[in-house]
C-alpha cells in the first residue's frame, strides 16, 4: 500500500511538472493580452505529433525535434499575436479571443486528423519500457525525462523573467500595461514575444507528452479543461500561482486515482475550479489582475 502511495505521489509530481509548464504558458498569454488561449492544448498535441512524425521519419530521438519546434512555435506565437489577436477590438478582446483561439484549435485538430488520420499514435523508443526504482516505486524513464524537460524549461522561464531586461519588461507589461508603456516599454512587441514564449512551452510540453503517451487529434480537449482549472485556481495571471496549483492538483489527481480510478480522479480539477470561484474568485495565489476577470 505504501509503495502504491509513494508511486502515486511521484507520478503526481511528475505529471504536475508538465501541467506547471503548460499552465505557465497559458498564464503568459493571459498576462500580456488578457486572452484565454483555448488553442494552447491543440498546439501541445500538434507539437507531440511533430515529435512523433520526426521520430518516425528519421528514427532520431524525438527530443531533437525541439530544435525545430521551439523556434517555430515561438515565431507562430509572435505572428498569431501580431496578425490575429491584436486585430480584435479591445472592448471585446477577452470574449472574441476565446472564439478565435477556439477556431484555431478546431482547425489544428481537423488538420491533424486530415494529415495523420484519427488513428492513435505512440512513439516507441529503446528506453520506452525501461523503468527505475525510486523509494520502492517503479517509475518509467520516459516520465522522468518528460519531467526533467518540463522542470528545466520552467527554470529557464523563471530566470528569463527574473534576470533579464526583457523579462522585466514582460513582467511590467503583465502587471500594468499602461504604466509599462509610459516607462517606454514597447508593450505590443513584448506582448508578441510573451505570446511566442507561451507557445514555446506548448512545443516543449508536446514533445514531453509524445514520449510516454498515446496521442490522437482530439486529445487536446482532455488537456484544456485541467489546464484552465489550474490557472483559475492559481489566480489568473500569476505564474508562480499556476505552478503551485499545477503541482497540488496533479498530485491530488494522481492520489485520487487509487480509490476512484482514472476517470473520476479527473473531476478533481473541475471541483477545484468550482470551489475556487465560489470561495475565492480571484484565485488562491493571484495578484490584482484576477480581481476583475
Amino acid at each position: 500500500m505504501t509503495a502504491l502511495i509513494t508511486q502515486a505521489v511521484i507520478l503526481g509530481i511528475l505529471l504536475g511538472g508538465l501541467y506547471a509548464l503548460l499552465a505557465a504558458g497559458l498564464t503568459l498569454y493571459f498576462g500580456v493580452m488578457r486572452v484565454v488561449m483555448i488553442a494552447h492544448s491543440a498546439f501541445l498535441i500538434l507539437a507531440a505529433y511533430l515529435a512523433w512524425a520526426f521520430n518516425r521519419a528519421t528514427g532520431i530521438d524525438p527530443l531533437f525535434s525541439l530544435v525545430a519546434t521551439v523556434p517555430l512555435f515561438f515565431l507562430l506565437g509572435v505572428v498569431m499575436q501580431r496578425f490575429l489577436l491584436s486585430r480584435l477590438k479591445p472592448a471585446t478582446l477577452t470574449m472574441m479571443s476565446v472564439l478565435l483561439t477556439f477556431a484555431i484549435a478546431l482547425i489544428i485538430e481537423g488538420m491533424l486528423g486530415f494529415v495523420w488520420t484519427g488513428t492513435q499514435r505512440r512513439i516507441s523508443l529503446s528506453y520506452s519500457t525501461a523503468s527505475l526504482e525510486v523509494f520502492g516505486a517503479n517509475i518509467a524513464v520516459v516520465k522522468l525525462v518528460a519531467f526533467g524537460l518540463a522542470a528545466v524549461s520552467l527554470l529557464a522561464l523563471y530566470l528569463l523573467m527574473k534576470a533579464t531586461s526583457f523579462g522585466q519588461a514582460l513582467r511590467a507589461t503583465i502587471q500594468h500595461k499602461e504604466a509599462a508603456a509610459l516607462l517606454g516599454i514597447d508593450t505590443e512587441k513584448v506582448a508578441g514575444y510573451g505570446f511566442g514564449l507561451g507557445l514555446a512551452t506548448a512545443a516543449i510540453g508536446g514533445t514531453a507528452l509524445a514520449l510516454d503517451s498515446t496521442i490522437y487529434p482530439s486529445l487536446h480537449w482532455h488537456w484544456i479543461g485541467p489546464l484552465m482549472a489550474i490557472i483559475v485556481v492559481g489566480g489568473l495571471g500569476s505564474i508562480p500561482g499556476a505552478a503551485i496549483a499545477a503541482l497540488v492538483l496533479g498530485l491530488s489527481q494522481s492520489l485520487l486515482q487509487i480509490p476512484l480510478g482514472t476517470t473520476w480522479a479527473q473531476t478533481v480539477f473541475y471541483l477545484a475550479l468550482f470551489i475556487t470561484l465560489m470561495v475565492r474568485p480571484q484565485g488562491f495565489f493571484g495578484g490584482r489582475l484576477a480581481q476583475r476577470f
Binding site: R34, V36, M95, A229, F293
Partner: peptide, 19 residues
C-alpha cells in the same frame, strides 16, 4: 467575476459532464 472565468467554466462544464 468577468468574462474569462465564465468562458472557462462553460467549457469545463461540458468536459466534466461528458466525463
Amino acid at each position: 467575476v468577468r468574462g474569462a472565468s465564465f468562458v472557462i467554466v462553460s467549457i469545463a462544464l461540458v468536459l466534466i459532464l461528458l466525463l
